[in-house]
Simulated assay, not measured.
Amino acid sequence: MQLTSLILAGGKAERLENREKALLLLDETPLLTVITDSLKAVSSEIIFSLRDEDQRALLSPLLQDSKVVFDSFKGKGPLAGILEGFKASSNDYVFVTACDMPFVNLDVVEHLFKAAQGHDAALIRKSDGRFQSIYAVYRARSMIPEIEKCLAEGKNFILAPVFKLDDVVAVDISEISKIDPDLRFLVNINTSQDLKKEGISIVD
């Protein structure tokens, strides 16, 4: 499978007292390692989007010789990290996830990858009609110019360039629920309540 997985890890966890989310522990394993090890099974390449060299030094034992990118557009949020990841990708199709979404479902990833073939992107459409922008597969060559235009226009939300694409596949959440009935893959860790609920611990 010629799929690149891009893991966004450069955000600051303000609701978790700016702790490094990538280093939070699930069953005594850092979240970044949990996600990376899972995605190896379906990815020919893994790229990490990080804040800066200091963060790379901190996470270096977990990066496993994978590609690392930093934002060229500073202060623009995850869309800037996605842009650099797409530019660095060796493959045309890129699966985008985040380091605070540890419950990877490989069947869902493969389903989205297959749905994206020949199209600009494949995104999950939730029951309220909104699209899931993280945990989606994008065609890098289609997205790069649209992201650059959006960032130049000050449109920093992830779906801004997606709405400019002509050929996006909407995968209904009901279809994905057949693969993962509990939708565990969508869980992300943002608060201390999330830590407790999902059994995530903090590095001492």
Rank of each mutant, 00 (worst) to 15 (best):
D65F: 12
D65A: 15
S66Q: 12
S66C: 15
S66W: 04
S66G: 00
K67N: 14
K67H: 11
K67W: 07
V68W: 09
V68Y: 09
V68P: 05
V68H: 06
V68C: 11
V69Y: 10
V69M: 12
V69N: 04
V69Q: 05
V69G: 02
F70Y: 15
F70T: 02
F70P: 02
D71W: 04
D71K: 15
D71I: 05
D71C: 11
D71T: 11
D71V: 08
S72C: 04
S72A: 11
S72F: 05
S72V: 11
F73A: 08
F73H: 15
K74E: 06
K74D: 04
G75V: 08
G75C: 04
K76I: 01
K76L: 06
K76H: 13
G77P: 13
G77S: 03
G77A: 03
P78C: 00
P78H: 04
P78D: 09
P78K: 00
P78A: 08
P78M: 03
P78Q: 03
L79V: 06
L79K: 04
L79I: 15
L79D: 05
L79F: 13
L79Y: 11
G81K: 04
G81Y: 12
G81V: 05
G81S: 14
G81C: 06
L83H: 01
L83I: 02
L83N: 01
L83M: 10
L83K: 05
L83A: 01
E84A: 09
E84T: 02
E84W: 07
E84Y: 14
E84M: 13
G85I: 11
G85Q: 11
G85C: 06
G85R: 06
F86S: 10
K87N: 09
K87T: 08
K87I: 14
K87E: 13
K87L: 12
K87P: 02
K87C: 10
A88I: 02
A88N: 10
S89C: 10
S89D: 10
S89K: 11
S90V: 01
S90Q: 12
N91S: 09
N91Q: 14
N91A: 13
N91K: 12
N91V: 01
N91E: 14
D92W: 00
D92P: 02
Y93S: 09
Y93A: 10
Y93K: 11
Y93R: 12
Y93I: 10
V94M: 05
F95P: 05
F95D: 13
F95A: 10
V96A: 14
V96H: 04
V96I: 15
V96Y: 07
T97P: 06
T97Q: 08
A98N: 09
A98S: 08
C99W: 03
C99A: 12
C99I: 02
D100Y: 12
D100Q: 05
M101R: 15
M101W: 00
M101Q: 07
P102A: 04
P102H: 08
P102L: 04
P102V: 03
P102S: 05
F103D: 08
F103Y: 14
F103V: 14
F103W: 13
V104Y: 00
V104L: 01
N105C: 14
N105A: 12
N105M: 03
N105H: 13
N105P: 05
L106R: 08
L106P: 03
L106F: 02
L106H: 02
D107R: 08
D107I: 06
V108R: 04
V108S: 10
V109K: 00
V109F: 03
V109C: 01
E110K: 06
E110F: 00
E110P: 00
H111I: 05
H111M: 13
H111Q: 14
